[in-house]
Amino acid sequence: MQCVLEKLVGEQVLVRSLLGLPLDTTIIDVRDFLLFTTNGVIPICNVPGVEYFNPSIDIKLKDLRKSSGECACCEDPLANFLKTKIGQFISLEYIQSTPLTGGTITGVGEGILLLDESPTIWGAYSLCNITRVIQ
């Protein structure tokens, strides 16, 4: 997620939080696994997703690789599953998300799912925070 957020420095975004409420803010900086915004500093581990509005931002995802650590049992199988669904519309929920988020899968990389949510909104979501995918 840190690599994605680094691409969004200076952009107005909606940060999805573990509380479920989106935070409309501008990203000032990203460093040391912290997200510095116009509304405060957020530990990146508490950011399950971010929505952005600039279509010219090109987010390059790291290739999938076998994970290790606490997210491996969720992240690897989910990433492999979602990779087979690129180009398809899905809805997803993540910890405390209300309502569900939906969009067309445009990319899956190490720990990240990219969605085209509408003609003007794109999203990046942490795979280890996704709790359900609806096809």
Rank of each mutant, 00 (worst) to 15 (best):
D76G: 11
L21S: 08
P119S: 12
G20Y: 04
C74I: 01
V41C: 15
A72D: 03
G103V: 01
I95T: 06
F53T: 02
Q12A: 12
G103T: 07
L8R: 05
R16T: 00
S91I: 10
E75A: 12
R65C: 13
Q2M: 07
D76Y: 02
V133S: 04
S126G: 05
T25I: 00
C71F: 03
C74L: 04
V4F: 02
G40F: 01
L21R: 15
E70T: 01
I134Q: 05
I44A: 09
D29G: 05
L23I: 05
G123D: 03
V4Q: 07
N39C: 00
G20Q: 07
R65F: 15
G109T: 04
G69P: 01
E93V: 02
C128K: 13
Q12I: 00
L34W: 01
V47L: 14
K62S: 14
L78W: 12
S118N: 06
Y94D: 05
L100F: 14
G87N: 09
T98E: 15
L61K: 08
L5F: 04
L61V: 06
C128T: 00
S68T: 12
V9K: 15
T37G: 08
L61P: 08
V15T: 03
I130F: 06
E6S: 07
G40V: 00
E6K: 13
F81I: 00
K83G: 09
Y125I: 00
W122F: 06
V30H: 03
R31K: 15
G49W: 10
L114W: 01
L8M: 10
K62A: 09
R132C: 06
F89H: 10
E117W: 06
P55S: 13
C128S: 07
C3F: 10
T104Y: 06
T131F: 13
L34N: 12
I42P: 08
N129F: 06
P119K: 14
I130A: 03
S118D: 04
L64D: 07
Y94N: 01
R31Q: 14
S68L: 13
L100T: 06
V47H: 13
P22Y: 09
G10Y: 14
L18C: 02
P77R: 02
Y52Q: 08
G109D: 08
N80M: 15
K85Y: 04
L92W: 02
F53V: 00
G10H: 14
F89L: 03
E93Q: 05
I44G: 08
V13W: 05
A72N: 02
K66D: 04
G10A: 09
K7D: 07
D76L: 05
I90N: 00
L35N: 10
V30I: 03
Q135S: 13
I27V: 06
